[in-house]
Simulated scan of single mutants.
Amino acid sequence: MPQILVDHSAELDFDRTALAAEVHQAITEVIDTTVADCKTLFRPAGGHRVGDGTSGEAAVLVEVKILAGRSAEQRAELTARVLAALRARIAGPAAIGVQVTELDRDTYRFVHHPGH
C-alpha cells in the first residue's frame, strides 16, 4: 500500500536502491505494513529552481502516501525517518521536502496486474 514518490533534480547523484530499501524498512517499523507492500517511484525532473536560482542547490521532494487512520505522531516519525535517510545519502547541497499524506480507505485500490 505505501507509495513513495521521489521527485528530484535529474543531475542529483544518490543511491536510489539503498534509499528505497531504508525508507521501505522505516515504513514497516512505523506503521503496520510489509516491505513487499511498499512501492517507490524515482522521477528525475528535467529542470528545477530553488529560490532565485543562485544557491546551486538540487531539489528533492518526497511524498509518502499511506492509508488514512495513522496518528499524527506516526506520520511525523515517518517524515523524520525519510528526511534522515535522504540527508545521509545526498552529498551535495539540496533543498529537501518530505510530506506524508493519507489515501482514502474507501476509494483507494491497488492490484498486481498480470498483464495480457
Rank of each mutant, 00 (worst) to 15 (best):
R16V: 12
A26W: 02
A68E: 14
A85F: 02
G46C: 13
E22S: 15
Q3K: 01
A94Y: 07
E102A: 07
S55I: 08
T107G: 03
E29F: 03
A59T: 10
T79G: 08
E102N: 03
Y108P: 08
R81Q: 11
Q25P: 04
L19Y: 14
A80V: 02
V100I: 07
T28S: 01
T54A: 06
Q74F: 03
Q3R: 04
V6D: 15
E11L: 09
I90D: 13
V35H: 04
V64T: 06
A10K: 13
E63V: 04
T54P: 02
V62H: 10
I31R: 09
A18S: 11
T79D: 08
K65M: 12
E63H: 09
V100D: 04
A18W: 03
G47K: 15
P93W: 10
E77G: 01
V64M: 01
F42I: 08
P2Y: 01
A68Q: 05
T107M: 00
Q25N: 09
A72G: 08
V35Q: 11
I90P: 13
F110A: 00
A59N: 06
L41K: 13
D13A: 14
Q74Y: 03
L103F: 00
A76I: 00
T17M: 07
I66K: 03
L83T: 14
M1R: 11
I4V: 07
D106P: 02
S55Y: 10
I27P: 07
D52A: 06
G47E: 15
D52M: 07
V23D: 00
A36N: 03
G97Y: 05
H116R: 12
A94K: 06
A20V: 13
F14D: 12
G69P: 02
K65R: 14
H116V: 05
A36T: 04
A45I: 10
A68V: 03
H113F: 05
R75W: 00
P114Y: 05
L67T: 02
E11N: 14
G56M: 09
L103M: 06
F14A: 09
D37K: 14
S55E: 11
A68M: 05
E63A: 05
D52Q: 09
Q74M: 04
V30T: 14
T17H: 12
L103D: 00
G46N: 15
T101E: 08
Q25K: 09
D15W: 09
G97R: 08
V98E: 07
V82S: 00
T54I: 00
V30R: 06
D7H: 11
P114V: 12
A68R: 00
F14R: 10
L83V: 03
F42N: 12
R89K: 10
H24C: 09
A18H: 10
H48S: 15
